[in-house]
Write a protein that binds this DNA or RNA. Sequence first.
DNA 1: TTTGAAATAAATGCTAG
DNA 2: CTAGCATTTATTTCAAA
Lengths: 164, 164
Amino acid sequence: MGQQPKKTQPVSGTLDGTDLAILAALMEDGRMTNAALAARVGVAESTCAYRVRALRESGAIASINARIDPRALGRPLHAIIKVRLGSHSRELVRNLYDALVDTPGVLTVFHIGGGDDFLVHAAVASPEKLRDLILEHVTVHPVVRQTETQLVFEVREGRGVLGG
Amino acid sequence: MGQQPKKTQPVSGTLDGTDLAILAALMEDGRMTNAALAARVGVAESTCAYRVRALRESGAIASINARIDPRALGRPLHAIIKVRLGSHSRELVRNLYDALVDTPGVLTVFHIGGGDDFLVHAAVASPEKLRDLILEHVTVHPVVRQTETQLVFEVREGRGVLGG
DNA sequence: TTTGAAATAAATGCTAG
DNA sequence: CTAGCATTTATTTCAAA
């Protein structure tokens, strides 16, 4: 078969079925042993280890991290804080972004285009702590024109980027 | 002082410095070996393994998963879809929630209170795919009254629930 | 790229403090 | 709850196809 000399692309669509199976398995259980992974996807252990390493080096597997239950750390209250800016100079936006990401209790910050500029997902201990977080870490920045906070009832992970 | 016997609560504030250090380390690298983890937090390997197991069983460590770069799967375009409902009957809301979570390309669904009812974070291949996702998996549900879609420029993980 | 098998490294079970 | 050691298990390496 005419095989093209496949260069190792940084990030592209050179993933075969084995790669996708590995990604799916590691999305479910990032600590699955290489032996179990190899058995599940049907290749030798050495091959599996090779593939996983390649996937990590290419960036397809960005990272493997533990998910901590915020309730275990006394932060049962989640909120989404919509942040709207008064100015959009690159430097001010970047500084605010950095500050938001570095705020204790902040889980994720979405920088978005459209009505709002940032969506901040935060977990806090109490309504008072939420108020403090907003006052001390969000509205304290002069570039912030307006915020709107919504209580998060529940967060669920979606099916993700696989199997679509 | 009220000397309450500290039982091992399923999920509560019985985490000491070692536990917190373990959580912090596993948030950074969920595949760190037990040996490396033990060295980092300054306890014996057997102790470290015991702590980690306890943290997993208590639910403090909810799970350990690989994060996949959506670009590697050909989904470079991210959006937040705000979903507003026309009716809020428990069953309809739950069915929609389930459907959203099960939609290919959906990364996270936030069920929130206030102006919007759901926030859907999705990754797709193209603007056309985004339109299709919304038409075929969101507005197709009669309970959905209105949607508003915003482009996501960037997503950054926050400092999280530790160190606050 | 894939593989099996040897060599290295790590996790687990057990004992005890 | 902690630590040390022996056993079991997993990962890495590498020559070969």
